[in-house]
């Protein structure tokens, strides 16, 4: 089966509090030129509200992918992941964890919490762009498959 290039745009939720990283993600996405709308939430609570379409986020689109930073103020990324995995609606949304940690403890605990993927944030920009490209290519149905259509 030949993958056809989809014309629809994808919605990716980035949960990240560091403005440097947010900018870096925007720069990288821009460089990649992918049809991705990046929604930014700087805290776990806000991100969960968005996901649950609570308050101002009534009618907000359901993200195709969540990019989650672990070191978040107030609500830790790990907690947020657990909440999502216990929610029937949010449970299927793939979550890719991006973190500076290389600790094996961190990594294994995240997989136990059913993170779909784990990435250590690369030290330089080029690597970052490359990693982001791999993630998006892998997790987003950029090449439409039969099972990828959720509409």
């Amino acid at each position: 089966m030949k993958a056809t290039r989809s014309t629809r745009r994808f919605n990716v939720l980035l949960v990240e509090d560091n403005p440097g990283d947010i900018r870096l993600a925007r720069e990288a996405l821009a460089q990649l030129g992918m049809p991705v709308d990046l929604e930014i939430k700087t805290s776990g609570a806000e991100a969960l509200a968005y996901l649950h379409r609570e308050g101002d986020y009534r009618g907000a689109p359901r993200p195709d992918l969540v990019l989650l930073d672990l070191n978040l103020p107030q609500m830790d990324g790990r907690v947020m992941l657990e909440v999502m995995r216990q929610d029937a609606v949010l449970q299927p949304i793939p979550v890719v964890v991006l973190t500076a940690s290389r600790s094996m403890d961190d990594i294994s605990s995240l997989y136990k919490a059913s993170a779909n993927c784990f990435f250590t944030k690369p030290m330089n920009y080029d690597d970052y762009v490359q990693v982001l490209e791999h993630i998006l290519n892998y997790w987003l149905p950029l090449s439409q498959t039969a099972c990828g259509d959720d509409s």
């Binding site: 560091n18 440097g20 870096l24 070191n71 500076a100 940690s101 690369p122 330089n124």
Partner: peptide, 24 residues
């Protein structure tokens, strides 16, 4: 040491990434 290794990495990564972006 643990905290340092985590929390020092972040700003360092910013320095490295943006220095590279600047050069690029």
């Amino acid at each position: 040491a643990y905290v340092a290794s985590h929390d020092l990495q972040e700003p360092l990564r910013m320095v490295a990434s943006y220095v590279q972006l600047l050069e690029k």
